[in-house]
Design a binder for these strands. Structure first.
Lengths: 168, 168
DNA sequence: CAGTATCCTGTCCGATACTG
DNA sequence: CAGTATCGGACAGGATACTG
């Protein structure tokens, strides 16, 4: 965020955090994904200061996660709608929500995902689209990709000796 | 985070952010999931200040995501290993990584998940464990859960009229 | 209603120095 | 090597007031 050290970090997680690392951004995105689009609604639901909200909203538009759209000419009124990029962020929010429900909901979940066709609560599972197998730390491990630079490669070569390591 | 307004927020996402909302925490967790456990390794890989690292490490131990374990008696040396709770956070990291690879990797991914059995790159997909159907904004929507308070219920009743809303 | 402008505070974080 | 202690800067975020 405030620091440029992250910018130089050749890691997709770090780069993502540049844009969504501030916690208000996540909460605003969550509201946007729930269909909220008006400045006032964001403010009332989140209890965020107007100045902060305006700043975060601008940052999210800048990052391409939200799009500003004028819905009224006079007086000019803007609303903020989710973009494709923002929509693609939903799985992150959902897995975070599930994690939060598991550890910080005092047993029962406060918010849950429901299958509107079966009316059943959704139990999220992360799988490999190719094999349909659930992601497992032992079987699915991180490795440098095609665009990896020497820095990343060195990292993994050095740590590849630790096959007995916990995971990933 | 710094603010208590989040604490009172009856939302699993907000509560999660209390513990992992600071971006260094995410990066440290990512290292820990890669098998890193020593203070010095964290520091070298992340380029983080020692004072900051110590503080973040303590916070993560406090939150139960990491566990301090003495691996040498004299001189006393501690290492930080991932806990079950921290391990359960891996899906969040992975979906975030995939999102980052999609939008911030200049085409090719820098780090990718590989199936060690098939040697193929993993393509992550979020599904409902009950139906094996991929999560879709139209079909899978958020609703108040069993533990929802009146505040949450009111939210959803008020916005349920907007069935044509983008998603969730 | 949808912001902008200004001021202020907390704290995240880095830099540096020191310890067993 | 694995930290602790201290200092200082930058900025996120809140409170308040004001505008079209």
């Amino acid at each position: 965020m405030k620091n440029k050290s992250l910018v130089n970090m050749p890691c997709p997680v770090a780069r993502s955090l540049e844009h969504v690392g501030e916690w208000w951004n996540i909460l605003i995105l969550r509201e946007a994904l729930l269909g909220v689009s008006r400045f006032d609604d964001f403010q009332n639901h989140l209890g965020i200061a107007t100045s902060t909200l305006a700043k975060r909203l601008n940052a999210l538009v800048e990052s391409g996660l939200l799009a500003r759209r004028q819905y009224c000419e006079k007086p000019p009124r803007d609303e903020y709608v989710i973009t494709k990029k923002g929509l693609d962020f939903r799985p992150v929010l959902l897995t975070l929500m599930q994690w939060g429900n598991t550890y910080y909901a005092d047993g029962e979940p406060m918010i849950q995902l429901v299958d509107t066709e079966t009316k059943q609560a959704v139990d999220l599972m992360l799988v490999d689209r190719n094999t349909q197998v659930e992601i497992d730390p032992q079987r699915h491990q991180s490795q440098p990709g095609p665009a990896a630079d020497d820095m990343i490669k060195a990292r993994f070569e050095a740590s590849s000796a630790s096959a007995a390591m916990p995971q990933q």
